[in-house]
């Protein structure tokens, strides 16, 4: 178990180096630089040189990279080329929005997916068929499109939920929840489909095990066999897929936040990309990588916790 964690942590160092290095390496490979595209063709050479100095682009790439890494170690992710705002500070302000969305989407996917999966494993073929189709279609529907359809129905046609905007939790928990309902559903759809299928297969597999016969014959009711023993025996694959879904939600939130105009990290990422605001997008990539590393670490630790053979030794 300790070895497992150490391997993950050891792998995360090159991972973070790769993620941070990619942008520096690529920038040095291609002609032109952010200063040129920021200023446009009408800028004077003096303006250009001044901006290059301000952005430290006049330094060798390795020096730039070293300075960036040193900054990162002190929590300094640089400043936005465009607004001059501190990247770390901006991320900290926007993180709660994205996390609300991602955690909400993962929890919803877990609840609905498990319920759907268990029912389709135990309630006959029609529902199993439905889950098959649902997981295919749910996986194929683009989440931004689902978000738009939801907005068209519940915000535009029925007017029961807001189509866009975000209300901070501190301001009003009720409005906060309302503003998240549609985005969370849009984000969770493919996760629901995936989890339903994994749980269905897991529960079916577990129910076919010999020990289920032992417990059934000894009078343990089916409901306990399903919700306790079958689910527990599917827990490893369930945890794996929840981790995958959480990480996928990091990507999904980029689109969903744009559909619902939520001021999270995802919409910041799009703005930064459109403006070529490299420090911002780099900060986001770093933040998402760290979240991914932490999630994968938690998944690995829970493997060990879920397996009695590992836990004892």
């Amino acid at each position: 178990m300790l070895r497992l964690i150490l391997r993950r942590v050891a792998l995360s160092v090159p991972l973070l180096l790769v993620v941070t290095a990619v942008t520096f390496v690529l920038q040095s490979l291609i002609p032109g630089d952010p200063a040129r595209s920021l200023l446009g063709p009408s800028a004077t050479p003096e303006q250009y040189e001044a901006l290059r100095q301000a952005l430290h682009l006049d330094q060798p790439v390795l020096v730039q990279y070293r300075d960036y890494l040193l900054g990162v170690l002190h929590g300094d992710l640089g400043r936005s080329i465009f607004t001059g705002e501190d990247v770390a500070g901006t991320l900290a302000v926007r993180l709660p929005v994205s996390l609300s969305l991602i955690i909400g989407g993962t929890v919803l996917a877990l609840l609905v997916g498990v319920a759907l999966g268990v029912m389709s494993a135990t309630r006959g073929r029609a529902l199993a068929r439905f889950v098959d189709v649902f997981s295919l279609v749910g996986g194929a529907l683009p989440n931004f499109w689902v978000g738009l359809v939801l907005a068209a129905i519940f915000a535009v046609a029925l007017g029961v939920l807001p189509a866009t905007g975000y209300v901070p939790f501190e301001f009003s928990p009720a409005l906060w929840a309302q503003s998240l309902v549609l985005p969370v559903i849009a984000l969770s759809l493919s996760g629901i489909a995936t989890i339903a299928k994994v749980v269905r297969d897991g529960v079916q597999g577990a129910m076919a095990q010999d020990f289920m016969r032992t417990l059934r014959a000894a009078g343990v009711p089916r409901r306990v066999l399903i919700w306790k023993h079958a689910l527990r025996n599917s827990s490893v694959s369930l945890v794996t897929v929840v981790g995958v879904i959480f990480v996928a939600s990091l990507s999904g939130t980029i689109l969903v936040e744009n559909v619902f105009v939520l001021p999270g990290i995802g919409s910041l990422a799009v703005t930064a990309t459109a403006r070529q605001d490299i420090p911002v997008i780099q900060g986001i990539a770093l933040a998402f990588t760290i979240v991914t590393i932490v999630v994968n670490l938690l998944v690995d630790i829970s493997y060990a916790l879920l397996n009695p053979k590992v836990r004892v030794s």
Binding site: V22, T23, G32, S37, I254, A269, Q276, I278, A285
Partner: peptide, 8 residues
């Protein structure tokens, strides 16, 4: 997205 930004 980062690559899109870099490669204009």
């Amino acid at each position: 997205l980062a690559i899109l930004a870099i490669f204009n």
